[in-house]
Design a protein around this nucleic acid. Sequence first.
RNA 1: UGCCCGAUGGUGUAACGGUAGCACAGCAGACUCUGAAUCUGUUUGUCAUGGUUCAAAUCCAUGUCGGGCAACCA
Length: 570
Amino acid sequence: MSLENITPENAAPVPSDFIRDIVAHHVAEKKYPQIHTRFPPEPNGYLHIGHAKSICLNFGIAREFGGICNLRMDDTNPAKEDIEYVDSIQADVNWLIGGWAEKELGLTTAKAPFYASNYFDQIHEFAVALIKKGKAFVCDMTPEQTDEYRRLGKPSPSRDRSIEENLDLFTRMKNGEFPDGSKVLRAKIVVDAPNIWLRDPLLYRIKHTSHHQTGDKWCIYPMYDFAHCLSDYLEGITHSICTLEFEVHRPLYDWILESLDLPRTLPKQYEFARLSLGYTIMSKRKLMQLVEENLVTGWDDPRMPTISGMRRRGVRPEALRNFAYNIGITKYNGITDVSVLEFAIREDLNKHALRRLAVLRPIKVVIMNYPDGIGEELEATNNPEDPSTGKRLIPFSREIYIEQDDFAEVAPPKFFRLKPGGEVRLKYAYIIQCQKVIKDASGNILELRCTADLTSKTGGATSARKVKGTIHWVSAQYAMDAEVRLYDRLFTEAEPEKDGRDFKSVLNPKSLEVITAKCEPSLNDAKPTERYQFERMAYYSLDKDSAPGKLVFNRTITLKDAWAKEALKG
RNA sequence: UGCCCGAUGGUGUAACGGUAGCACAGCAGACUCUGAAUCUGUUUGUCAUGGUUCAAAUCCAUGUCGGGCAACCA
């Protein structure tokens, strides 16, 4: 692409934040041969939009600075981890940045993804090396005692064991001679350091649990702090970027690496604020609770803030990436307004969704002066934002459906839609006037009798006539039914856990409503990869529950609705 | 309580000692065969008090408020 072809429209946005500033500085001074980051999820749950922020940061930095980013399973606790999560993580990362960062995406290389468990042998050797240096010891205290001693800044009675004895005990730990919890390997740093993480922290614990990658090879597993910095080192990571809660661990991260007298350049840890989103919870543990207690249908329930949930809902990866770009990277713990996410989703879908006509809550309209039996096909635009998507034909007939909300027997002020005696344009078709409202005995509206201005058809003699409102419609004769799932936010409160309240007490009872809609026939060919805008309503995509002859659409997000706001004012 | 970190409109962010800008939201208007999109305009801000300086959102001190950590989780 030549330079003059780069416009603000197509130029890739180049984010700037304090971490990228640091990296840029390192690049400028040639501190490292190549920038190397990593995204290290623990496979104990599904990835959510907070992880998306981290993925975009880590892979983004690699991409922008000509570096590499490893996807690494941080799988040091087999008790909580599962292969299901390993698989879902790969699928989600691939979906989010596949095609955008393939060069940096470990998934396309033979050795990817990476696993911390792959380094268990080497990590074990590092532990032995630390013991030999007199910098680690085997401790016999119970977990409770350990807690208390660390809190009090007291030395463990095992602290001054000989190197030989430590070596022997650690070997026996490894050989499975001791039960879970009976012994641990600890770093020998400072018993009463102001930073708790320097008070002889645990390095290895005994866990007779088989591991999803290493099977029954190990009964001792390294703790996060020990495994993480060493995994970073082994992979040649230069910038180890994590969230704020690890800030206090940084001295330990450095201590371990520095204590080992390692030959290569050491990685450095940097911290940023994790994402908090309004009307959302982000804890994997709590999301799992929603799944396990069947408060949602699964990790990929379209109401979940998980990557798989948002994907199923119809959000495109571009929208998530844009969102991640827009919110920035700082060390400030704020709560991002959901409207920022919603804007990113709408902005993307507006450009890419095919327009279709569908009536969600139908009311029948009979156009009395339109001949029965002879239908006609009208031309409709697929996407005004993208002329290359062309046009399609939609059938028109004497009997149609319109949206209940588009008719008011007693119209409020500024109501531009259909009312008795009033006129509206049917999109792509005629201007109609409401002549009569037919009701049943109890006063429910059964149908509307209208007349059409037969020359007002789009392109026709009086087509230029201005009427205030244009509404969507669908031919009663040719319409097809589809199940439509209307999703709303999962919680009724912006801060579900504010003041320690139980997030389950503020679940939105109306977060899902299922209806049957009347759709234009072309939707019969709806594809799972396609996105649709049902004009004037919302964006939708085909759900995986669809089957031949049974369409199921998920509402991704509504269109902005200025009228709803206006109507509220009364 | 100890240690660490942070604080810029309603929300999220930029300004790296030199004109406080951007996005979302809000409001007002234009346009509209989507009350969408688009376009125009616009309300609102440097936590406080001192200090350094010709000049402070930025540097220093103190205070206030908020967050994190104190798991044989990551």
